[in-house]
Amino acid sequence: MNKNTMTQLLGGLLLLGATILPAHAGDGHDHGEAPATPAGVASPRFSATSETYELVGILNERKLSLYLDHTADNSPVKDAKLELEVGGKAVAVNNIGEGEFEATLATEPQPGELPITATIVAGNDSDLLAANLDIHSEAHADKNAGALPWKPIAAGAALLLALGAALRIKRNRVVGGAA
């Protein structure tokens, strides 16, 4: 087989290889509507509402941030006292601003539902609110998340090697023919 035939054969193989490479698409790539993805892991939270008050709590490890508003207009409750029970245990609450409180739990809660009871006293009004804080363990990451698609990379590398070999053969033919 002469060099010209070899170059044509190699070129044909390169062309064939380029056209039969498998398309690589990750999970969920069906060209349909893409589902919304969360921006990150949301902190566990709860909300408890009565005719007078709404209490929202957000847990970050052991720290519980609490927001107390009037149900009617969503304005912060001024000069309120808040008593809190988490899982049946009293937890000290600090007022850090109008309608904003902070509490630190003794230990980080385990996954599951944790009952919350809040007693609110503001002026002559008082209320008892109850809710459950639903704590989920973080979902396991997909084992293939972040993995490189090795098959297309390997195919591309093989094509580049074949192209390099074809160019080397062509260059040798030109150099050899000129000499």
Rank of each mutant, 00 (worst) to 15 (best):
A130G: 08
V93A: 03
L167K: 08
A178I: 03
R45V: 02
V86W: 06
D127H: 05
F46Y: 06
G26W: 13
N172H: 10
I58G: 00
T104I: 11
A18D: 06
A106C: 05
Q110C: 04
F46H: 04
A157I: 15
K81M: 04
I169A: 07
S47L: 01
L84H: 09
A106W: 05
V41N: 01
V86F: 13
N2F: 05
I116Y: 02
I116E: 00
A158E: 02
K63M: 12
L167E: 15
K170S: 13
V91H: 07
A80M: 01
A165L: 13
P115R: 04
E113N: 04
A131K: 01
G123T: 09
A141W: 05
P22H: 09
I120K: 00
N4T: 13
E100I: 02
A165F: 08
T117D: 10
L128A: 12
L15Q: 03
G26D: 10
D125V: 13
L82M: 01
G57V: 04
A178H: 06
D73C: 07
T49E: 00
S43P: 05
S126L: 08
G87I: 03
N144A: 07
A18H: 07
V121G: 11
A106Y: 08
V41Q: 08
I116F: 03
T107D: 06
L55E: 05
A122I: 05
N4F: 14
S65A: 07
V77D: 03
H29V: 14
T107V: 01
N4S: 11
L64Y: 02
I116M: 06
R173G: 02
L21V: 14
G146L: 05
V86Y: 04
P38L: 02
A162I: 04
G40V: 00
K78E: 14
N60I: 11
D125R: 07
A18P: 00
K151A: 13
H70M: 10
H136K: 07
D73E: 09
G97A: 01
S137K: 14
D125S: 11
D27Q: 10
G176I: 11
T19S: 12
N60S: 12
A118V: 11
P152Q: 12
P149S: 09
E100G: 05
A178D: 07
A155Q: 12
A42D: 03
G28Y: 02
H140S: 11
E83P: 09
D142L: 11
K3M: 10
N74I: 05
A165I: 10
E102N: 08
A90S: 15
D127W: 06
T52Y: 12
L128M: 13
A157F: 14
P111M: 04
I153S: 02
N132A: 07
D127T: 06
N172W: 15
A23W: 15
V174C: 01
I116Q: 00
E98S: 06
W150E: 08
L9Q: 13
L148D: 00
D142W: 06
L84K: 06
E138S: 12
A157W: 10
G177E: 04
N95H: 00
V86L: 10
I169N: 06
R168P: 07
K89I: 08
I169D: 07
Q8K: 15
L13I: 01
K63H: 14
P44G: 04
G87A: 07
K81P: 02
L160R: 09
V93Q: 06
L133C: 13
D134Q: 13
K78F: 04
N4G: 02
H24N: 10
A18L: 01
A23R: 14
S47W: 00
R62Y: 10
I153N: 04
G26N: 07
A23E: 15
